[in-house]
Every structure is written in C-alpha cells, then in structure tokens.
C-alpha cells in the first residue's frame, strides 16, 4: 500500500488559459519524502501547479514525472491511482452524506473487489469494507473528527469540512499528497494542530507532501523544503530559511502580497 515516497519533477511546464499563461516554463524538483511548502502571492500559479501535477488542467508544454514514471499523458484519475492525490482549495464534498462516507470515498485507490462482488456482498467485499472502515476510523481519529463521523457534512462548520477533505485525501496513504490551503479558515490553534497532525501522518506513512500555504510561521513549522512561485514562474527553492531569506522572495511575497493574502 505505501510505496516509498517518490520525487516529483516538472520540466518546462507551461499552462495556458487562452492567451494567459498561468504557468511559464516551470521546472521544479520536489524532493522525495519531504513536506514541501508551495508559496507565492495570489496569481503566482500555486493552484495551477497542483492542477498540472494532479492532472486537472491540460498542460501546453512540459512534463510531469513522479519517481521515474512520466505521468504527463495520464488523466486525473490515472494519476490518483498512481498515488498522486490532491485536495481542493474550494472544498468539494458530498454535502448530504456523512463525514464517514466522504472519507471512505477516498479508499477508491485501495484494491476494491469487482462491482458484482460488491453488489452481492461477497466475502471479498466484506474484507475490503473492514479494511476501509478501519483506515477511515484511523484518519478521522487523527484529525479529531472521530466524534463527527456520522454527522452530515453540510451540518459541519467550515473548518471541519476542510478537514474532512484532508481526511479523504489521506485515508488511502497516497505517496504524493497535494493539499491546497488545508489550513484556510482554521484559527491559530487549529493551524498548529493541523500542522502536527500532518507531521505525524507524514512520519507514519512516508509521502511527498505538497502544501500550499500563506502563513509563513506555519510553513516554517511544517515544511522542510519550500518552493516559491511568482506570476506563473519559478522563483526560488530551498530550505525555509533560504527561501524566506531571499531578497526576491521577500519582494514578491511580502512586498506586494502581505495584505492581500492574509
């Protein structure tokens, strides 16, 4: 289930929306097994980069490699099955279903019995069901949602709904995890808690985890590596200290966007 965390590499990645180039010739190396902060002001192309890596936006030029596999030609679903699972900036949940159902959706990547075996409840279905509910219970417990697992998602406060989506991503222990502002909407305490949970999950299930985040302190606590984008282009990568100490990054990130991004 848990493959070793792979390196993720994009090469010359260009994404166009009409005449607008959302990503321009972006080459980044995401070191294997690290928690990587993806930073940059609004419009820097952070979400577009996640979309391009996870297969949710067409790539005009360039390639995406995970480990030694070239995923460029694969659709979003195939990339998910290959271990690249992402969360969305705008939470996408099954609103009228329970927390547990929403998290269990994420077990799709685990080997599931055939549709007929599931429909008729054959033993293979029962085994898969036990495995999946155990995995869901574990991740819900880690995220502090265990008591909510039977609540309908549309009854939950915003911060919890975001955590449900994080749980859906984490439940199958993917080897590449892409989270788009998972801490948005959480208060200071919630952010620190999320950071420690993500760290713990990362320790238990090695993965290459990319987190889009604006909060500099959070990035410094959570991430061992940082990549900065600006206006659709690669700006700088390195340790948090290196990147945040960089003059160009400071200019792009704090100079322009400190107020807008808060």
């Amino acid at each position: 289930m848990t493959t070793a965390a792979p390196a993720v590499r994009t090469e010359g990645l260009t994404v166009r929306y009409g005449a607008f180039r959302a990503l321009r010739d972006v080459t980044v190396n995401l070191p294997p097994g690290e928690i990587i902060g993806l930073i940059g002001p609004n419009g820097a192309g952070k979400t577009t980069l996640l979309n391009a890596i996870s297969g949710f936006t067409p790539i005009a030029e360039g390639s995406v490699h995970v480990g030694d596999r070239d995923l460029t030609a694969l659709g979003a679903r195939r990339r998910a099955l290959a271990g690249v699972v992402r969360g969305f900036q705008t939470v996408r949940l099954l609103e009228r279903e329970s927390v547990l159902t929403n998290v269990l959706i994420g077990t799709e990547r685990l080997p599931q019995p055939s549709a007929l075996a599931q429909f008729f409840g054959l033993p293979s279905q029962r085994r898969a069901h036990r495995r999946d509910t155990a995995a869901a219970a574990e991740v819900l417990d880690l995220l502090g949602l265990a008591g909510q697992s039977h609540r309908r998602v549309d009854e939950l406060p915003f911060a919890s709904r975001r955590l449900v989506e994080v749980a859906r991503v984490l439940v199958s222990s993917p080897s590449v995890i892409l989270l788009d502002e998972p801490a948005a909407g959480l208060d200071q305490e919630g952010r620190q808690e999320l950071a420690s949970v993500l760290t713990r999950i990362h320790r238990n299930h090695p993965s290459t985890m990319v987190v889009v985040e604006h909060d500099v302190d959070l990035v410094k606590t959570l991430c061992s590596y940082v990549i900065a984008l600006d206006s659709g282009a690669f700006l700088r990568d390195g340790t948090p200290a290196e990147v945040f100490g960089d003059r160009q990054v400071q200019l792009a990130y704090f100079g322009r966007a400190a107020g807008a991004d808060a």
């Binding site: 996870s54 679903r77 998910a80 099955l81 969305f88 996408r92 949940l93 159902t101 077990t107 409840g121």
Partner: peptide, 25 residues
C-alpha cells in the same frame, strides 16, 4: 455500504472529487 454505492454518490455530487481519488466516472 459498498464502495460501488459511494462511487455513485460521488458521481452525483462532485465528479471532480470522484476523479481526484481515482473513481472511474
């Protein structure tokens, strides 16, 4: 209570999320 049934709900509510976890829509 099956993943098959959950796939259906996911396809009904959000195809994007369904695909993001590997559901064949």
């Amino acid at each position: 209570r099956t993943q098959l049934g959950r796939r259906m709900l996911a396809v009904r509510d959000t195809e994007l999320a369904a695909e993001s976890v590997g559901v064949a829509v």
